[in-house]
Design a protein around this nucleic acid. Sequence first.
DNA 1: TTACCGACCAGAAAACGAAAAAGGTCGAAA
DNA 2: TTTCGACCTTTTTCGTTTTCTGGTCGGTAA
Lengths: 190, 190
Amino acid sequence: MEKDEDVKKSILDASRIVFQKWGLNKSTMEDIARETGKGKSTLYYYFKNKEEIFETIAKQEFTAILIKVQSVIKLEKSAKEKLKLYLITMIKEIKNTVSIYPLAKGELKANKHFLNEIQKYLADRQEDIVMEILIEGQKSGELNYLKANDLKKAADVLIGIVRALSLYLFFDVDDDEQIDIAVKFITSGI
Amino acid sequence: MEKDEDVKKSILDASRIVFQKWGLNKSTMEDIARETGKGKSTLYYYFKNKEEIFETIAKQEFTAILIKVQSVIKLEKSAKEKLKLYLITMIKEIKNTVSIYPLAKGELKANKHFLNEIQKYLADRQEDIVMEILIEGQKSGELNYLKANDLKKAADVLIGIVRALSLYLFFDVDDDEQIDIAVKFITSGI
DNA sequence: TTACCGACCAGAAAACGAAAAAGGTCGAAA
DNA sequence: TTTCGACCTTTTTCGTTTTCTGGTCGGTAA
């Protein structure tokens, strides 16, 4: 059905607005219902619960980031340049992503099942992207000093760096130039 | 007086134990007094208040880290190697520093005056260290691609990276090898 | 005078219970 | 099929009381 998806989308859009304004915990289902222009009960016709709404938004936003990263990476040939773009794009996009804030701030109670699920999903997809770059770079000889054994470890570290710098951005700093320089260090060395 | 300093030290030692066990907020002056083997009021004979005790410990620990970093750096000639050692040593030492935990977790109420003071102190001293390395490396030609103008910016970024990775360690990860690899990336490039 | 402590105070934090709000269900109407 | 109001249950909020804790003070012993 066409209509069904439209309503779902309108609920998600409304939720995004509400979450952005209040954060996850302070946003109520009634806030979302009001913003959507429907009754509260109606939300439950389209989503199992509040968590599912948030989960859907988070997955959508993460997926959008990953798609953007992949499209940006395609434009470059060199593995190093690809990695550079991966780092910069990820960090900057994460910074502008609504659903990250509650995640980063630990607004949700820890150990929520779906949270771990999303984090694993994000980590896995990132690992795919980074590993592909590394393997390609190795084949082409550009990164031939990396032993085949260390590729996965290197990928994990890069993903960790993205998390660390994103976290740092949230808590301490708001300066794109710092990120650019940091990424330059990481890709080219000091 | 000799004795006076001894008692102060014993209070600080006891405090370190208590802070390590309970964190700053959950540690009471009576806990510290009990651990010291003196009455609570006595603590106030030696320190103005709880904050001063914590401040003293924090400054001592930070100073110890900075001294260690400087002594380790002396062993290397190359600027790049020095920077590498700076990063690794800072991050690893910070991880093992009692007083950082409350700071990182924001356990203290924000905007405490002395907190900002300590952070500024730490940042300034780090800037001294890093700038010295960078300037030397530039003079020797090792880092001659860095423009004189950019040195301070580069130093700030390196200090920021230390903070970001330390934060990350506290929240997410407990793996020295990851840090080693990350530092290698930063100093040598991918 | 120096080093220490017990008794004490005021304000902060924990505990608590009642009231309000929130998430979620269900039957019925449109 | 889609929507909603009434309703139930659980969680959060909030005002109040009680306990705890940082900090002061007067006194005491060496």
